[in-house]
Design a protein around this nucleic acid. Structure first.
Lengths: 228, 228
DNA sequence: AGCCGTCTGTGATCGTCATCACACACGGAC
DNA sequence: GTCCGTGTGTGATGACGATCACAGACGGCT
């Protein structure tokens, strides 16, 4: 069981933006999408494949009670939409740009051709899928066995790790996210998330502010994620 | 959101046993493992890749409270162990043979070489990973939003579909599995599972016996899986 | 037949988390 | 400045499911 990732930044080992741009960009078509723009909807039978060059795209699914669940957040260098292109079974999630985002788009057929023609692209695609599968499995394990408190600690750690301390002194990490988004990443309600954050705040591990959480004691957070 | 799969039988679109044998077997090494034999443990740094030729292999992870969770069951034609080979981050699950099983084994490096050299193998591997990622995402969605009752109905349907009615008349499906294994596939306890089965039995949808569940009314089960 | 281990079925209790329902704090628009 | 929208913090309640605790049923073994 490895650390769960939120995908804010490409995972270690993921292709670099240059690689994706080079590998997909040669055959694909580059464009910029606006915040909130939907690239495809869950269930659509479209099958084009996207590479994220800059910006961020959120992959969400509609849960049972109308709640929405964030499956992944794709950043620069990430490939998405490839699952539908490979199995032809329709989009497994909805893709929404979270900010102005530069993407490369390629038809499903062209993607298959490109993979066939370029072993390095094939390997990059395999690595990307392997990483996403590992994360998904981690999340299955976490979701089905761990209480919300542990999940919050785990995700905060992950976010903190990806946002290298802009506040200077190196022992403090600032995570810019509101409680609602954090809750969706956990598959929990905002209220449950807020209560866990309150506990952590009282324990002196973090401080919270509007759309921002500051991690003061990383080790304590690790301990919370582990034993609980 | 598509149907959750338990992987008892290769998913539609997965490479056929012949294909795997041909694609991996040419470079790999074939052998037979006994029931209960462990091919690798969660966390191991081994990285060989396996193809299942005949029999079944269970991929399990240890949950938080020592409970174990079945991530997948690989049947003939399925590839497994490729995630660790691709990302080099250790085994994400433990693989245990459920019955005498014939496998093809290939070192991680040989696997990468094979993928590089053979575009068709690369595509087959991509399709396999895409299918597994889709299932994993479905399961995340199901696990984090659906009550146990729905999950039981869903998994029973899936199992029924894969075990074409050996009882002759075509309107009855016999699922050979005990409550403990069923519960592990759901990520629920045996007791919760047994209670849902009791409800379905009382509703006349299924009958239950030792290590066997008979589905009499598939449509009713579909309805249970949907609305609940 | 008799025994024992596995599997099943169910009650009771209790903890976690979702849901509903507010109050307050902050920031931008006017 | 005031208003309003968004984000936060927290109480009360209830439902779902985990856990503990048994009893009974079936099948294999000797």
């Amino acid at each position: 069981m490895t650390q769960m990732s939120t995908g804010i930044v490409p995972a270690a080992g993921a292709p670099s933006p240059h690689t994706v741009a080079a590998l997909l960009g040669a055959r694909g078509h580059r464009r910029t999408v606006m915040t909130g723009e939907v690239l495809f909807h869950e269930g659509d039978m479209s099958n084009s494949v996207f590479g994220c060059v800059s910006g961020r795209v959120r992959l969400i699914v509609a849960g049972a009670a109308g709640r929405e669940l964030v499956l992944a957040v794709c950043g620069p260098g990430d490939i998405f939409g490839d699952v539908a292109a490979l199995d032809g079974r329709g989009r497994s999630a909805t893709a929404v740009a979270m900010e102005p985002t530069e993407i490369v788009e390629l038809s499903g057929a062209d993607y298959i051709d490109a993979v066939r023609a370029d072993p390095e692209l094939a390997l990059a695609a395999l690595r990307s899928l392997a990483g996403r599968l590992r994360r998904a499995n981690d999340r299955i394990c976490a979701g089905e066995t761990e209480p919300v408190a542990k999940r919050v600690a785990r995700v905060l750690l992950d976010l903190a790790q990806r946002c290298p301390s802009p506040s200077g002194d190196g022992s403090v990490w600032v995570v810019s996210i509101n409680q609602t988004d954090l809750a969706e990443m956990l598959g929990a309600t905002r209220e449950a998330t807020a209560r866990v954050l309150a506990d952590l705040r009282r324990a002196g591990v973090i401080t919270t502010a509007r759309s921002r959480t500051v991690v003061h004691d990383r080790d304590a957070l690790v301990a919370h994620a582990r034993r609980c």
